[in-house]
């Protein structure tokens, strides 16, 4: 029955366990894809449609016709005349059971027809304004800039500082190196929630409260990054460093010209993770940043959705913007990420 839990390979025909396994995979894929896909499709719906129930699948909007002699575009209707022929016409007005329409082929002529003989025409049309308006009218452009700034600067600093520390901890034996390493490792599991208050005090004490640098500086010295890079650098033969010393390279040159290029795979993994961490950070920025002009995208999104009137068409579009970079990174670097996670247990 539950034999699908065991593994076998190389069978020739499908059996019950295969069917159950595939059912699980397909179900799982749907469970993951549907909410995201639904949010994505909905983000293109105009305000009127997003609030209608039952919902439609695709973003639709009333079709309009530009007809000579009319200043504004007219809503498009399909009119079926007495002969049973269907034409597209523009609706001028509707009074009771009678509607006045105009045929775009003969713009001068107004027709009075039965209201029952015309059907409103809609077309799939994404509401791009959902995306442009929050950036223009609300502060989302600022949030976006802040997020990009924090992510970029923090990632660069993380790579530089962590790789320097990892270099020292992997390629030198010096008094205190083990102490430092153990100290860092012991905080690997330490969650922010335990040191929220004193960490905030430190930020206030350094005059970095409500400042993007307060978010950046406190996140760059990641023990995870140092650990990951150190483990990788341990695999670089020490001979190379000695050869470089014989070659009159300064210690910095050894770091820059030998260690960094050879650690590229590990640096790439850390860079990917750092970008994702900093882009997605929520609780710490929530504590440090208080004025809206300093909000990151995540904070801005949260603040915006908490407002009294919930404007889902804007929220969803900005949600898509927030998940886009991570999704692109994942699409292109999927293999690095899953293998990095599997081998290091880092998340």
């Amino acid at each position: 029955m539950l034999g699908f839990l065991t593994r076998t390979r190389g069978k020739s025909r499908m059996d019950v366990t295969d069917i159950l396994a595939w059912a699980w995979l397909i179900l799982g894929t749907l469970v993951i894809a549907i909410p995201i896909g639904w949010a994505f499709l909905s983000s293109f719906k105009p305000e009127a449609e997003i609030n209608s129930f039952p919902p439609t699948l695709l973003p639709r909007a009333a079709q309009e016709l530009v007809i000579e002699g009319y200043d504004d575009p007219l809503p498009a209707y399909a009119w079926t005349d007495e002969q049973g022929q269907t034409r597209t016409v523009g609706l001028v007005r509707r009074i009771g059971l009678k509607a006045t329409v105009v045929d775009p082929e003969s713009p001068g002529e107004r027709l009075s027809v039965d209201a029952g003989s015309i059907v409103k025409q809609t077309a799939i049309r994404p509401a791009w304004s959902n995306y442009t308006e929050p950036l223009e009218r609300f502060a989302f452009l600022t949030y976006l800039k802040n997020s990009v700034f924090v992510t970029t600067v923090a990632t660069i600093l993380t790579l530089v500082l962590n790789s320097m520390a990892a270099f020292a901890l992997s390629k030198y034996r010096f008094r205190g190196s083990t102490t430092i390493f153990v100290l860092m490792l012991s905080t690997l599991m330490l969650p922010l929630s335990v040191i929220m208050v004193p960490a905030f005090m430190v930020v206030v004490g350094l005059n970095l409260a409500d400042n993007l640098w307060g978010v950046i500086f406190s996140t760059v010295a990641t023990p995870t990054g140092v650990f990951l890079l150190r483990q990788y650098m341990l695999t670089i033969p020490d001979d190379l460093i000695e050869a470089a010393r014989v070659d009159a390279a300064s210690e910095f040159r050894i770091y820059w010209r030998i260690i960094l290029p050879l650690s590229a795979p590990a640096l790439a993994v850390l860079a990917i993770f750092s970008v994702i961490w900093r882009w997605n950070d929520f609780l710490w920025p929530l504590i440090v940043l208080s004025s809206p002009e300093n909000y990151t995208l995540q904070l801005g999104l949260n603040a915006f959705q908490g407002q009294f009137t919930v404007q889902w068409h804007y929220i969803l579009s900005m949600t898509v913007v927030a998940l886009l970079p991570v999704t692109l990174i994942f699409l292109f670097l999927q293999r690095y990420i899953t293998e990095g996670v599997a081998s290091s247990g880092v998340k």
Partner: peptide, 17 residues
């Protein structure tokens, strides 16, 4: 330091970059 001594060394592993 090694470089000041004016020596060259060939390593067992070659230690090529």
């Amino acid at each position: 330091s090694p470089s000041e001594r004016g020596i060259s060394m060939v390593f067992q592993s070659y230690a090529l970059y």
